[in-house]
Design a protein around this nucleic acid. Structure first.
Lengths: 343, 343
DNA sequence: TCAAGATGGTATAACGATATACCATTTCCT
DNA sequence: AGGAAATGGTATATCGTTATACCATCTTGA
């Protein structure tokens, strides 16, 4: 019927000024109960919904943030996003999610779009090869940014990360406690720094507890890679009885690989994963893994963004999330006799 | 250092008027090459990025849309989203994705937020129980809406759908052609209408070809659910040799479930999925499924939204997407002897 | 009684763009 | 030569809010 209602419309039907309506909507200023009521009635009558854009423009305050991640379909990531959204929603924020698909130039375009469209902040998982222009954009526009999962090259940017080293220490200790001495580390792409941290944790325990010399084998983060690697490992290092994996996908592949050569995971060979993806609980046998609560990570991430928005001058901080051991069936006591091939 | 650059800033450093800068940015009006150059230099110098918000406010044109879906982590949905984003990006739009998690009141809050924040349109998968208020909101604000995958109660809303019934007819016929007579339908949440349509197709073939009485089992659309359901099904209906699934996730879970109880998918039990998610091709064995090219669906969806935005007075339309049978290894001829447990 | 303070409300200038109208010049055509 | 049209640019109102300043009245208190 009519035009989209604005403060103007409400003011006219309530018989007051625009300023009054604005004050009622915001609960600001001094307005009597009587007029407040009149205004509220008018608001309902014309079905008024404020234009957040105009408000943001004038007030400089902005209740929209963007979240740019490399893969929204990843179940772990989806949980993180849930945590972020829930927390931000309690503060009246709208979170819009974008997917970079790990492509640096899509990432650039998305960040630019978020800046053009005046987001109040950006939650960001950088690709492995961020373009310089992307950093320039962020820097010249002084937009609040918090990275997570992957660290950016810029040390001035807040970061929320998984406590990788501690997690692999716990994982390695768990295997050592079960009597394993020959433990290998498998998986991860070469130069991703989360992997480097994890390897540090593994090596540290191997040294501290005077176990065998570390064996580290990188590979893609897929089941197929885990499947192959574990068979090769078995041939080349038959003394190994425990494997710490860089991620659950590799671990799951390793399980299949072991079964293929007649070894029983948890009895003949202990395998421990990382992430605790939903699949980990329903494989045969179910996977022991280092679980990081992604939902909680998301909430803390949101908190970090809110802090950054509210006090922009704070020095850059880095927040750590603990991973906890979930013991299922793929780790077990090292048996006295050497595991041997079934035939 | 300085404030965020605006048209004002650029105009000053270029020594021209604000209007001129605006025209250069938009490629509108008549501006000489010389001044155009001056302006562009100034733009670069002060690192100017236009405020899309302000532009949208004044011009009434809006290059942001929202996409509200029940589960962003679902790989099929993620592909749809990719298609939408790519197509919209070519037209200069920013797509912000929200997840309703199939909760009607979260859905309401998200739609309200999208309206407050002045999205130019909403792509929407309705929950199974949309609140009346949600419709009222959409209706009074006349915001362009296109639903997909699930149909809304409002017949005036554009819709892009998969040709569900035809797809499950094809799927069921495929199994029947292979000699199966006892075929069950597994998966999907109770009252989702896409599922109802699919069940119609399944039942229709079961009747027409005088096969066994239909068996329909609903469940969540996850691997975990498929994993459990199939084992239960096996116990309660041991005569069943073929399963039509409501989605690939359930089918994949079913595959694992079958293997867990010693059955070989494609030999002892035929399973056919729906969606053709990327994982379907690389499982062991690879999944036979009804492929619906989600990326293409996304592109068509975006097209529909663009049409609606550009010509708002067109009557509501409904677009159908065909699903095609992709035969891989999880369906096979029904063997003479009854499948039996391995022990 | 009357200055000082509450109380309740309005007028108006921003925010950063776009669109319209308009004003000088220059070029063209006959 | 001189009016018409093209060229290149600017001034200004506007979008829907918020924030500031300000203006009436009405209470107080001494």
């Amino acid at each position: 019927m009519t035009d989209k209602p604005s403060l103007q419309t409400v003011a006219e039907t309530a018989g007051v000024s625009i300023a009054t309506v604005s004050q009622v909507m915001r609960g600001a200023g001094r307005i009597s109960q009587a007029t407040r009521r009149k205004v509220l009635d008018a608001v309902r009558k014309v079905a008024y919904v404020p234009d957040a854009r105009a408000a943001a423009m004038r007030s400089g305050k902005n209740f929209e943030i963007g979240l740019l991640i490399h893969k929204i379909a990843n179940p772990f990531n989806a949980e993180v996003i849930s945590g972020v959204s829930d927390m931000m929603e309690t503060q009246g924020y709208l979170v819009s999610i974008l997917d970079s698909r790990d492509e640096p130039d899509r990432e650039f375009r998305h960040i630019e779009a978020l800046i053009r469209n005046m987001r109040g902040g950006i939650l960001w998982v950088p690709t492995t090869d961020v373009q310089d222009e992307t950093y320039k954009l962020i820097h010249t526009h002084r937009i609040p940014v918090v990275t997570f999962l992957r660290r950016s090259r810029d040390p001035m940017i807040d970061h929320v990360a998984i406590e990788n080293m501690r997690a692999t220490e716990d994982a390695t200790n768990h295997l050592a406690d079960l009597g394993h001495r020959h433990i290998a580390y498998v998986g991860g792409r070469q130069q991703v720094d989360s992997r480097l941290e994890r390897i540090d944790g593994y090596k540290r325990v191997m040294e501290q507890r005077k176990l065998a010399a570390p064996i580290v084998i990188p590979c893609e983060d897929t089941k197929a890679a885990g499947f192959e690697i574990v068979q090769k490992l078995r041939q080349e290092n038959p003394e190994v009885t425990g494997i710490v994996c860089n991620g659950d996908m590799v671990a799951l592949g390793a399980l299949t690989g072991l079964q293929r050569i007649g070894l029983e995971p948890g009895r003949d060979m202990s395998v421990i994963g990382f992430d605790d993806i939903p699949d980990a609980a329903i494989t045969t046998p179910p996977l022991t893994t280092m679980a990081v609560q992604p939902y909680e990570l998301g909430r803390k991430l949101a908190r970090a963004m809110l802090d950054r928005i509210n006090t922009p001058d704070l020095p850059a901080t880095s927040m750590l999330i603990r991973a906890v051991l979930v013991e299922r069936a793929t780790t077990g006591r090292q048996s006295a006799q050497r595991p041997k091939m079934k035939n």
